[in-house]
Amino acid sequence: MQNLQHVNPLSPMSKKEHRGRIQAQSDHLEESVSWSQDTPPSLKQGLDMANELKGKLSKKELKKRKKQFEQLERFMKNASESGGIYSPEFRSFENEDIKDGTRVDFELWAGAFGLSLVIIIVLFFLT
């Protein structure tokens, strides 16, 4: 997981099959953790990335997004329990109490996320 943060998924050189990012934003903040890899990120990877993103935020910014991170993690768990999700997919979890667009976004640009191990193995041998 640690090597993923060095990947710029927008670079043409890094157009892997499974790409996306989670992002914490508002009108004064933009932090993200991206992935670009040959296999779909697992739920554990997704939760690790959420934690990595939390680690990039100040206590104040994290506090403003506590519920939104919980929603993101619930979404990823629900997706994983439902067989995963395929791209393109977008989910935005916004703090409606703060009128500056404080939110956490999930963006699945290509490939899949949270697929079961069996499906990953099948996909691996098909590609």
């Binding site: 004064h28 903040l29 104040k60």
Partner: peptide, 18 residues
């Protein structure tokens, strides 16, 4: 209405301190 809109256009400078 200030209660129904916010400015959030282009990438903004990162402010991420306490």
């Amino acid at each position: 209405s200030p209660m129904s809109n916010y400015e959030n256009s282009n990438p903004a400078p990162v402010v991420n301190d306490d």
